[in-house]
Nucleic acid binder design. Structure first.
Lengths: 140, 140
DNA sequence: CAAGATTGAGTCGTCAATCTTA
DNA sequence: TAAGATTGACGACTCAATCTTG
């Protein structure tokens, strides 16, 4: 058992490669996985959320969302709006262009996933997800 | 098949969580996984490499190495030196402090891996690595 | 011109400090 | 005081442009 500890390293290396691959597929739409995740979360919530709510759903820190929404706003995919009952809060609302980009992005993303998992049996896919989630469980 | 494509997303989410976990373990040493990977590659190569060679071994871009070595140098873990036969090249050489940090970092890293994989059977570990490498193969 | 390294700008994430509103 | 958002500084990565040396 003198494993030099390659499991975690190869996991993270693979994740990086997969992300680069996916991001390259999304780039022509002006999207990245981060942007798509945000748009997708907003759409699932009925097209708008406060920044804090969005941070919770993406499980990241609020200051990250501030900047991500900055970029999405510059892209024209989201606009900031006032929250009805709390003057401290700002809503991020998906624009029509954002709706289109999100739909197309999810389509591309699904294609990419199918492409990358083409050689995987249903059992292998299940195993991969199960093992990865088990690992994440312990790291949390 | 109307998979919303959660396999890639959960892989990358898990990788992020695992990295945060590992980085937190290394932080008291003044290390991160990125820094440790660089030091470890240098040690394996006999304690020094040109920046281009280091970039190849870490499979990343050269400008990234320039900045990573900047930080390692500021930490006192590495120093830049002239290359013997090519005045264009600069060597990154591990310092004594870098050697200590690397050894200790690898130890911590191995502990972290054992901790995270505590609930995994030998078969599961093999499967995880095999599946992840198969996926990376296709993404490359 | 090629190669090695660096710099500048941009993305995506963190944390700590700050400002406004509740 | 605490909650919501922002800002500034930094880590780690990318690409494109530049400078020096071969």
């Amino acid at each position: 058992m003198h494993d030099t500890g390659r499991v975690l390293v190869s996991l993270m290396h693979a994740a990086g490669t997969v992300q680069a691959h996916s991001d390259a597929r999304l780039a022509p739409l002006g999207l990245s996985m981060a942007k798509l995740a945000a748009l997708s979360a907003l759409r699932q919530a009925g097209d708008s959320l406060s920044l804090t709510q969005l941070a919770e759903r993406l499980s990241c820190v609020k200051s990250n969302i501030t900047q991500l929404v900055d970029r999405l706003e510059a892209d024209g995919f989201v606009r900031r709006a006032a929250a009805p009952n709390d003057r401290r809060a700002r809503l991020a609302a998906v624009t029509p262009a954002g709706r289109l980009a999100c739909d197309e992005g999810l389509r591309i993303q699904a294609l990419t996933e199918r492409e990358l998992l083409a050689g995987f049996s249903a059992t292998e896919k299940r195993q991969l997800v199960a093992l990865v989630e088990k690992l994440e469980q312990r790291a949390t």
